[in-house]
Amino acid sequence: MHSPIIPNKDPATQYSLGSRIGTGSFGLVYKGVHVETGRVVAIKQIDIENSQDEITEIAREIWRLADLRTDHVTRYYGSFVTGYKLWIIMEYLAGGSCLSLLKSGVIPEASIAIICREVLLGLDYLHGHCTIHRDIKAANILFSSTGDVKLADLGNATTVTSKARSFVGTPFWMAPEIIRQDGYDTKADIWSLGITAIEMATGEPPLSQYHPMRVLFLIPKAKPPALEGNFSASCKEFVSLCLKKDPTTRPSAKQLLKHPFFRKAGKTSSLMTLLSRHDAYRKRDQAPPYQEILPTQFSLGPDGKWKPAGGKVFS
């Protein structure tokens, strides 16, 4: 797919901006149409004037997106500045996110296997390029209208060749080693995938009854969460492998792709049943197309305090 042509003069006029469909790292995401080609796209708008502290991180996200060559991550088409807004033009995925699908009910094990396999393929690519996503969760797993599964929102991703120490992510899905800040690598994404598998199976991540700040203290001290209930032994084992407290004993994405849990996993087109279920739910409840406010994300500021994006500083 070729990138839309973005002229030097008034590039924003080349796009028709539609409804808001989500909230990503650093900005709001809208559905849009490239006027000349009629192509539907996703447009992330970032207020540069109010994001001076994050400009470097935003630039890094764009560089990462531009370098990606995989079908397992949302495609980047281009970016430009108009007024005080940075527009990032991305692939639009009409199926919405895994989080939006959970509104119509928990996700069956057979579908969880397909989704986790596709996420692992994306992670295997990113990890092979020394990139940690750092925000794997249902809200950042998107679907095309035909059931393709793609990772989204690399705003918190980082490229490392050694251990990272930055305190970044969303508390409920955050690996213990990130919270402890004792150095972490790509295995942190594997922990987050295990939490996401539980989220898909039960509708919520573990510890969701607690305030995010409380969760940051509980995760490093508590036993690893486990998937309980009417699920296969291979599904439960897969989750338990992802949630090994010691990251050195956690399998890599490549190793997990060989797990028996995926032996009978179907094609992504099988997820159309799941998408149809959610579409029927939206029509029955007259709910608007997926629009999400993502769970609070935190970063550790230079003053040593944890700060939710756009919110109050916690000591």
Rank of each mutant, 00 (worst) to 15 (best):
I114M: 11
R282H: 01
Y281Q: 15
F261H: 02
L17Y: 04
L294C: 15
T186A: 11
Y15I: 10
V313Y: 12
H127M: 10
W63N: 12
T249L: 09
R282C: 08
I107D: 10
L86G: 01
P260T: 11
S192N: 08
F217M: 00
I58R: 10
E61W: 07
T37Y: 10
E49L: 05
A287R: 15
A188Y: 12
K267C: 06
P108S: 03
G301Q: 11
G266N: 05
D246T: 10
E54C: 01
D124N: 09
D53V: 05
H127Y: 11
I178M: 12
K254N: 07
A253E: 13
G311K: 13
A152H: 06
S192P: 04
K283W: 02
I293N: 11
D303C: 09
L123Y: 10
K221D: 05
T202E: 14
L99T: 15
L121D: 02
F238M: 09
I195V: 06
K31T: 01
K254H: 07
G183D: 07
Y77V: 02
A59G: 06
K137F: 04
L154C: 08
F217G: 03
I55S: 00
Q181R: 15
P108M: 00
K9T: 07
I48P: 01
K137S: 08
P224V: 11
L294N: 14
E109Q: 12
W63Q: 07
D67V: 08
T74R: 06
T131N: 04
K223H: 06
G122M: 10
A59V: 05
G32Q: 05
A110E: 10
L216Y: 01
G96Q: 07
V168C: 12
T82D: 15
K31F: 01
A113F: 09
I136Y: 10
S269F: 06
Q291S: 11
L120E: 00
V119R: 13
L121T: 02
I112M: 13
D279T: 13
Q297A: 13
L294K: 14
E177P: 11
S79L: 04
E177K: 15
T82W: 14
A188T: 10
L294F: 13
Y84P: 03
Y84L: 05
I5F: 14
I179S: 05
D285C: 12
P295E: 09
V119E: 03
T74C: 14
F231E: 07
T23V: 13
E54Y: 09
G304S: 03
A175D: 05
K163V: 02
K307E: 12
D285W: 08
G169N: 07
F172V: 04
R282W: 01
F26N: 03
I219E: 00
K245F: 12
Q181M: 12
I132Y: 13
K283V: 02
L216R: 00
L300M: 15
D185I: 04
L68K: 00
Q209T: 02
Y92V: 04
G194F: 07
G304M: 11
R180I: 01
E54M: 04
R134Q: 10
C235M: 13
F261V: 03
S192R: 08
